[in-house]
């Protein structure tokens, strides 16, 4: 399962830079990120090439951060109706999406959708998604793009 790095971050100038500084110092590459804002604070969510290393480096600098399993879904072909198919698969399993974002793979220009759901390791979820024509990337596949 792919890992997302979730970091607690105060909502004021300079806090994002303090995170990117740590990532740069450790030569970590960012595939995608998003921010969920909640007033005086927010959560920064990152997909990086070495999530464990990133977590340790940030925790060393005092950040509250955790690794969470997320779904990294990719489709065979970019075409209309992909999201509809994916949401059909999720609905079949009764999965609620808490957060979602995406990026384009630098390797083959494929779109990759990242989704935070309540129970990403639910039995049969991967099969259901695959049955609708999607691929669920493993962590390794994702980090080595």
């Amino acid at each position: 399962m792919a890992k997302q790095l979730t970091i607690f971050m105060e909502n004021r100038p300079g806090r994002m830079k303090s995170i990117s500084d740590v990532l740069l110092e450790n030569n970590l590459n960012i595939w995608a990120f998003t921010i969920q804002d909640r007033g005086e604070f927010g959560l920064m969510k990152l997909i990086v090439d070495k999530p464990e290393k990133a977590q340790l480096a940030l925790a060393d600098c005092g950040f509250a951060c955790v690794l969470k399993d997320v779904l990294a879904v990719t489709a065979e072909k970019d075409q209309p109706g992909n999201l509809d198919k994916l949401t059909t698969a999720l609905l079949e399993k009764g999965v609620n999406v808490k957060d979602a974002y995406g990026f384009v793979s630098p390797k083959d220009r494929q779109g990759i959708c990242l989704m935070e759901v309540d129970n990403p390791n639910d039995l049969g979820l991967e099969e259901t998604i695959a049955a609708h024509g999607f691929t669920l990337l493993t962590g390794k596949e994702l980090y080595e793009l």
């Binding site: 979730t6 969920q36 909640r38 509250a64 955790v66 808490k98």
Partner: peptide
């Protein structure tokens, strides 16, 4: 200040 060891990354829990 939130306590780093108790942080779960879950917004609902922070709320």
């Amino acid at each position: 200040e939130i306590y780093a060891k108790m942080f779960t990354g879950n917004m609902k829990e922070l709320d």
